[in-house]
Write a protein that binds this DNA or RNA. Structure first.
Lengths: 338, 338
DNA sequence: CTGAAAGCGCTTACAG
DNA sequence: CTGAAAGCGCTTACAG
């Protein structure tokens, strides 16, 4: 592979000039530039990114940490972040935490060792204090984490408010006995906020019955099995906030198969507005996931830039209160299941 | 950040010994090892990946090139490859080609410049000869590409055979007028193979009517709109090979809404066996996508290893005929739409 | 088993 | 506008 030295010899210039030209510094003569461009094409030169990183201290990479890149939510998040990153000239280093055999408190170790300028984290960091060391070295942005507990820059949808809105929608459509679903694996932070919303809603609406039901998988199959549990409840529920399009889809189809009239006898709300929700005409809560990914990258880029410039003495210290949080607008979409 | 030199000073050893210890070379005394391990923990040392790459010539990274990481097929492919890569100690550099403003013949430029030891390519490389230069430098494995035309290592499902099998299944279930769908954007190579299969099937079964229909998007919405086109055909089709679960899903739901009995009056086959196919009980062709991603990485790793060792003079040159191709088994899953 | 030393390919003050 | 030179943090023959 040709190096910058080869370009220098080929053109009769010094490596310094070649480097400047390649990095679009000002003060490179037109002749030099043309000669160098020719040499680059002629020799098939490509800069060595390792050498560049070693010297400059930057990698041009950002890490994206998700539980599983094949889950529709995280897939869209990664796609959005990746597109924004590419536009800004950054590469995306993808790390999945779910399948790995990493210790729970070492989730970020591999991606940090690999070398990145910043980090986008959508995986749950619990307890997040254990990550304080690692995270103090990097610009980092969290996506969709439990915000009350984490003091880091974040891009998120308010799962507490959106759940309350979904429940209110069920009430307005006439549901009197409402069930709120959440995951048995209490880890996921949206679930914690949803549970809090279920209780608050019950508290605010004492005339309604509000049940909570736990489910062990976020899949259509689990949604189908939910129907039996629902019919065992007293009074019989007539509204369900599932927190998941997949669960809602499974439940809807099971209900239809068993002759339960949706929405007349049972109203169902999903979450995310994934393709399946559109196909089945599910009422759901839309999240602009790709946009969230892109926004998360934009915020991260901003942090990377400010962290590189030495903080001026007069500037306010970016203490725990100075953290940036971007709340993304969700939207309840009423379709045919409520 | 502490460097290897700090560890050397802290322990009183040389950087050479520290490096050997860190890289698990043999011939490091037990005492040295313990002292170094202590120092690493004490100082919070982390190797600098750029320096390591620059020196060793390896990056520990593989590039994954897909059109769009949020598409279920590519998402699963990336997830499978990422998991396999992580287990082998490699990081994944993700690049999406669809959203970028790259020139068609420069799809691989960014990821190559970023520095990788090998490449997994699922995006269409047309015309692939233009990539010959870039690809001659790297171990590369293609995923699901048009094989007849590309002379590169590959992991793929046979879209020609699987389409023929799907069409035969429609015939066996009683369809006499069959429609094969393909994309108007002729770029996607599976589509080319499917069209060839449609024609071959028509040729083999002169007693049947075989129509071809083009569709401009791989979405449920496009599938819904398909119904009108279908009913305009003469004779009225009673079997559709869609080549996509999303299209099949849209078509199925549109049919139901319009009182078309599926499967009695219209039989539908999807492709992929994505979650939506399971929920809707679609007959479809299952592809083990995650496994394909993992297998592609395994093959790539093998190529990376052999390309690093100097080929012995006696060994046969790995000419165009020596390329490895892994055909992955698909499976027709008959559910309730045929 | 260990150390001194070269060098991977770049970038960047410094001095013209 | 340009060049000579130092050095980023490692790894690896080479010589003990």
């Amino acid at each position: 592979m040709p190096t910058i030295k080869d370009i220098a010899e080929f053109t009769g210039l010094s490596t310094a000039t070649v480097s400047r030209c390649l990095n679009r510094h000002p003060y490179v003569s037109r002749e030099a530039q043309l000669a160098i461009e020719l040499a680059v094409r002629e020799l098939g030169y490509r800069p060595n990114s390792a050498a560049r990183s070693l010297r400059s201290g930057r990698t041009g990479r950002v890490g994206v940490v998700v539980p599983d890149a094949s889950h529709p939510f995280f897939a869209a998040l990664v796609a959005g972040a990746g597109q924004a990153a590419a536009q800004a000239g950054f590469d995306l280093l993808l790390q999945q935490t779910e399948a790995g055999e990493w210790h729970a408190d070492r989730l970020l170790e591999p991606v940090i060792t690999a070398g990145v300028d910043g980090l986008l984290v959508a995986s749950e960091l619990t307890p997040w204090e254990q990550y304080a060391d690692a995270l103090s070295e990097f610009p980092v942005v969290t996506c969709d984490q439990a915000l009350a507990e984490i003091d880091l820059p974040a891009v998120y949808v308010d799962h507490y408010e959106s759940t309350l809105e979904g429940l209110a929608h069920l009430r307005e459509r006439g549901s009197g006995s409402i069930v709120g679903i959440s995951s048995t694996s209490a880890a996921a932070s949206p679930d914690r906020l949803r549970r809090a919303a279920y209780r608050e809603f019950a508290h605010r609406n004492p005339e309604l019955t509000v049940h909570e039901l736990y489910i062990d998988a976020d899949t259509p199959e689990a949604g189908s099995q939910l129907l039996a549990k629902l019919t065992a409840l007293d009074p019989l529920p007539d509204g369900v906030f599932t927190g998941s399009d997949d669960i809602a889809a499974g439940l809807l189809l099971a209900a239809r198969e068993n002759g339960v009239d949706v929405p007349a006898k049972l109203k169902i709300i999903g979450f995310d507005d994934s393709p399946i929700a559109r196909v089945l005409r599910l009422t759901t809560v839309h999240q602009p996931v790709r946009k969230m990914g892109a926004r998360a990258f934009t915020l991260l880029r901003q942090l990377m830039q400010t962290s590189r410039s030495t903080p001026s003495p007069g500037a306010a210290a970016s203490g725990p209160t100075g953290v940036q949080r971007v709340r993304v607008r969700y939207k309840l979409i009423a379709r045919e299941t409520t």
